[in-house]
Design a binder for these strands. Structure first.
Lengths: 150, 150
DNA sequence: CAGGCAGAGTTCCTTGAGGGAACCCCAAAT
DNA sequence: ATTTGGGGTTCCCTCAAGGAACTCTGCCTG
């Protein structure tokens, strides 16, 4: 497909897409998160082609999102989230929130999340890490940062 | 490429990917957000093929993320975010946060965000919409929802 | 009125990524 | 010695992304 390389762009959105923007990658993360850690489990659950799954896993390991760990004396491996990978799950949580709100339709959300701290079924909201007030696109002004393009 | 259809899956992540998971779509949203509203502006800024840009814009309009508005008596159009689209920007904000943290390198983030409420340069954090405490992947238990697959 | 121009696509060709099925390799278990 | 099963490879086919050229429409200028 001769895809444009997003990783080179001076944009954190493009760079993040370079890591998990390919088809299937976020779903692979989701599956690893909920406990599908082995190749055949992932392949069966996702219905992804084995070839593409191999490519994606290798790439995610290379980018430090997943760790590949042997779990047997035979050459058997499990994939686990690294710290980077765990922090990427925030992205999935926000996707869930949006999908639940706008795409779930009559049937309602397929999965609900109970928050440990309060015990309630809830969704995530974006708050300013500094003051704790809501922080959405309309609540911020973008300005050039140190790594801005010349 | 004969891509698998994510929209049919009983998963809000997959459904959201069906809407903005294709290459370029998040970057188009970003550009429309920051004020590139016209075809040629988008094409020039992104360096995307005109053909693909046409397809993406049509698709995003069809899915209710963008609105197409004439701005002239001639057939000239601008693309603007709908409410759905604006709420999708949360996703971009989280991508920015992750990319800034893990991919910006020595140079630092290319763009910074000043939060209106407190005036500080900050990042977004995920909080429980119910109790306001942090809500990351490790802070929740998933359970089947009403729209769960059979 | 002819010609030019600019925005917004459309057409066409080439390349290469995703899908799918079959095949392979290795180490245990029988 | 053969089977089994996890974890990939290989091969072929289709279709999507890139890229450049082309089109269409209505204003603008001479």
């Amino acid at each position: 497909m001769q895809r444009t390389n997003f990783g080179e762009m001076a944009c954190s959105i493009a760079r993040t897409l370079d890591v998990i923007g390919e088809p299937w990658s976020p779903l692979i993360l989701r599956d690893v998160w909920v406990g599908f850690n082995r190749f055949d489990q992932l392949q069966a659950d996702l219905g992804i082609s084995r070839k593409v799954l191999t490519e994606r896993l290798d790439y995610l390991v290379e980018r430090g999102i997943l760790r590949r760990e042997p779990y047997d004396r035979r050459p058997r491996y499990e994939y686990h989230l690294t710290e980077r990978g765990i922090e990427l799950l925030d992205l999935l949580i926000v996707m869930v929130g949006w999908g639940d709100k706008w795409l779930a339709g009559e049937a309602g959300p397929p999965v609900l999340y109970r928050h440990h701290a309060c015990g309630e079924i809830s969704n995530a909201d974006l708050r300013c890490a500094h003051c704790g007030q809501p922080m959405h696109a309309g609540d911020v002004d973008p300005l050039p940062g140190p790594g801005a393009a010349v």
